[in-house]
């Protein structure tokens, strides 16, 4: 229960951070991505502020074997820089530039009752489902051969 409450609070803090920073305003996001128009550099400060805090947290996490509550620390172990990483990130960036929503701000805007954010989140979930189906199919083909 302690965990469920802290996860909820972390989500709440993260969501407030997204709203305060301007990330939940697609117009502002696109203003940042519009290098060749009237460029709004604000979101570079979002990234800078987040990383300035994060660097210390992850340096601490790497030295520990358990969380402050004594639970397991799930740090990523993949170092692969491959075609999946690159192609996936390029597709994500294109979608981000088209509408100005990335996953977190889209969820927060859904919570704020934005109809377009709701449609975006539905399409995003459909995209994630397509990925799952493609993964399961390729695993099945890998195990049983193509039919």
């Amino acid at each position: 229960m302690q965990h469920r409450i802290s996860e909820f609070l972390v989500g709440l803090i993260f969501g407030i951070g997204l709203i305060l920073s301007g990330m939940t305003d697609p117009g502002k996001v696109i203003g940042f991505l519009d290098l060749f128009g009237a460029w709004d550099p604000s979101l570079a400060l979002v990234m800078g502020g987040a990383i300035a805090v994060g660097v210390f947290a992850f340096a601490t996490a790497k030295k520990r074997t358990a969380t402050f509550l004594g639970g397991a620390l799930h740090l990523p172990n993949s170092n692969d820089i491959d075609k999946r990483l690159l192609l996936g990130s390029l597709l994500f960036g294109a979608g981000w530039g088209l509408a100005g929503f990335c996953p977190g701000p889209a969820i927060v805007s859904l919570g704020a009752g934005q109809p377009k954010a709701a449609v975006f989140v539905l399409a995003m979930l459909a995209g994630m489902l397509l990925f799952e189906l493609a993964e399961r199919r390729s695993q099945w083909v890998g195990a049983h051969g193509r039919r």
Binding site: W96, L98, F101, F120, G127, L129, F131
Partner: peptide, 30 residues
């Protein structure tokens, strides 16, 4: 909260699909 969404409905759907597929293949987002 302030939000300016210029993208039309069709663009929003295409963008959502790209973000969904892309973030899972790329194993992460912003």
């Amino acid at each position: 909260t302030a939000a300016r969404i210029d993208a039309g409905w069709v663009t929003v759907v295409i963008a959502g699909l790209l973000v969904g597929v892309g973030t899972r293949y790329g194993a992460g987002c912003t």
